[in-house]
Amino acid sequence: MSNREAYIKKAEAQLKEWGAQIDLLKAKGENLAADTEIEFKKKLDEAEEKRAELSSYLDQLADKTDSIWDDIKDEAEEKWNTVSKTFSDFVDKFK
Rank of each mutant, 00 (worst) to 15 (best):
E17P: 00
A62K: 15
K41G: 08
N3L: 06
D89A: 05
D59Q: 11
E17M: 03
K9T: 08
V91A: 12
K28W: 06
I8L: 04
F94S: 07
I38C: 05
S2G: 07
E46I: 08
L58R: 05
A62V: 02
L25Q: 12
F90R: 02
Q21Y: 12
E46K: 14
L44I: 05
A11P: 00
A20K: 14
Q60N: 08
L25D: 05
E77A: 11
D74L: 09
K16G: 03
V91I: 15
K95Y: 10
K42I: 03
K93S: 11
G19N: 12
D63P: 00
D66N: 14
Y7F: 15
E37G: 03
G29P: 07
D35F: 12
K50N: 14
E49S: 12
I72C: 07
K95L: 11
E77G: 02
E37L: 14
A13Y: 08
K73I: 04
D45W: 01
A34E: 15
T86A: 14
E75I: 02
K41M: 12
S88V: 02
E5K: 08
D70L: 01
E30L: 14
T36A: 15
A11T: 12
K95G: 14
A76C: 00
S88T: 10
A34I: 13
R51D: 03
W69Q: 04
Q60F: 11
K41S: 06
D59A: 07
V83G: 04
E75N: 13
I22N: 06
K42G: 01
Q14S: 08
S84D: 11
E77Q: 13
W18Y: 12
S88L: 07
W80C: 01
A33F: 12
K50R: 14
K28I: 03
S56K: 13
Y57A: 01
W18N: 07
L58G: 00
K26P: 03
S56V: 03
T65W: 13
A47Y: 06
D59R: 09
K93P: 00
D70V: 06
I72N: 08
E5I: 06
F40E: 03
K43V: 03
N81S: 12
M1A: 06
K43A: 12
I72S: 02
D35R: 13
D70S: 11
V83T: 13
I22C: 12
L58T: 05
D92E: 11
W18S: 04
W80F: 09
D71W: 06
Y57K: 02
D92V: 01
D71G: 09
N3T: 05
E12K: 09
I72K: 10
E17R: 08
K93D: 10
L44D: 09
E39R: 05
E46W: 04
D23S: 14
A76F: 02
E12Y: 04
L61E: 07
F94R: 08
K41E: 14
D66Y: 04
Q21C: 02
L54E: 11
A13M: 11
I68Y: 15
G29W: 10
I68K: 09
W80V: 01
T82C: 01
